[in-house]
């Protein structure tokens, strides 16, 4: 690992001032992704600004019924929090489906949102990767593509977004708050991550000098009937092949409210807008679930090793919605 200068920031103002004056600086929270990437020589900051001591550690109920989550809240603490378990179970389940107990104790909410892809060609400095080195090409094409995206990819990059937590946040209409010396911005989670297009190295809407300070969840009564379902190559401690975050409310025999997002298949956390549009007002039957899932996956582009993800995603959507229906979505 390349040597770097270390700055410990006691508060947000100090942190954003420190990063504003250092062009090749990075924030470090839990370090579970950044330390690994630095050891692999993929991230090479000159300065690391430690934000792990900043007191952005609250999980607070907002006046309108939403919840504000500090960016330094550890993943494990958020998943265990009573407000999240009771009102947004899909978020608790998504976090618990990711990584391991040890990593969840280290990883922060802000860091989880900014974690980078686990595409093996991104990690392998001997391979071509437009994300790591713009214009160098992409060795995933023609390579081993079992874990790659089928939605939202481009000719430059088909890396899948790795986060479970972000899939739930996408379904829940979460808003990310960022701060810099220039002020505070609020970005909807579904607009926070960018599709690769011709610039896969630009992964998010956040500027290099902006710090994630909080995530806000709106009041969302339907989220009490929500669920995260993850399909992977082993039973635990593996990234998703396919995952589904869903919330469902049925009234008078039709779908009154639905939230649906996909993981493992998308170049970013994938909010399933098309499926939601078709489901809204439809009868909650397996047939309509299947039609909505197929419509969402219709634009999918498969590679030789990941074509199975399209049908797997459709089936997982149908199964998750059926589970929610049985669990009280019809209440």
């Amino acid at each position: 690992m390349k040597a770097f200068a270390y700055v410990s920031a006691p508060d947000v103002a100090t942190a954003v001032r420190a990063i504003a004056t250092e062009p090749r600086a990075k924030f470090i929270g839990g370090g579970t992704n950044l330390v690994d990437l630095m050891r692999e020589d993929i991230e090479r900051p000159d300065t690391v600004v430690d934000i792990s001591g900043i007191a952005l550690t609250g999980v607070e109920e907002l006046a309108g019924g939403g919840v504000r989550i500090g960016a330094m809240v550890r993943n494990s603490h958020l998943a265990a929090h009573p407000l999240i378990r009771s009102r947004y179970p899909v978020l608790a389940q998504a976090i618990l489906a990711g990584a391991s107990g040890q990593l969840r104790n280290m990883a922060t909410v802000g860091g989880n949102i900014l974690q980078r892809t686990r595409c093996p060609y991104f990690y392998d400095r001997a391979a071509a990767c437009n994300k790591r080195e713009p214009g160098s090409g992409c060795d995933a094409f023609g390579g081993f593509t079992r874990n790659h995206a089928v939605l939202g990819g481009s000719e430059s990059c088909i890396a899948a977004h790795p986060s479970d937590m972000c899939v739930a946040l996408a379904a829940l209409d979460a808003v990310v708050e960022v701060e810099s010396v220039r002020g505070v911005r609020r970005i909807p989670l579904v607009e926070f991550h960018r599709l690769p297009g011709a610039t896969p190295h630009v992964e998010t809407d956040i500027a290099a000098d902006e710090l994630i300070t909080a995530v806000e969840l709106p009041a969302l009564p339907v989220a009490t009937t929500s669920r995260y379902r993850k399909v992977r190559d082993r039973a635990s401690y593996a990234f998703a092949l396919v995952s589904v975050a869903a919330a469902l409310e049925v009234q008078h025999g039709t779908v009154a409210t639905v939230r649906l997002a996909l993981g493992g298949v998308g170049a970013k956390p994938w909010r399933a807008h098309e499926a939601e549009r078709l489901l809204l007002g439809a009868a909650p039957t397996e047939e309509s679930f299947r039609r909505a899932a197929a419509a969402e996956l219709a634009p999918a582009v498969a590679q030789p090793h990941n074509a199975f993800k399209i049908e797997l995603a459709e089936r997982t959507i149908v199964a998750t919605l059926a589970q929610l229906l049985a669990a009280g979505g019809a209440a």
Binding site: Y6, S8, I28, G31, T32, V35, D36, R39, V48, D50, S52, S100, G101, Q102, L103, N105, M106
Partner: peptide
């Protein structure tokens, strides 16, 4: 593994388990 995948480096910090390989000591 020295990359947070195996757990052999697990220690307790203030009673909570973490992967010490992904922890910068200075933090």
């Amino acid at each position: 593994c020295n990359q947070g995948a195996c757990g052999a480096c697990t220690v307790l910090v203030d009673g909570e388990r973490i992967n010490s390989c992904l922890a910068l000591a200075v933090q």
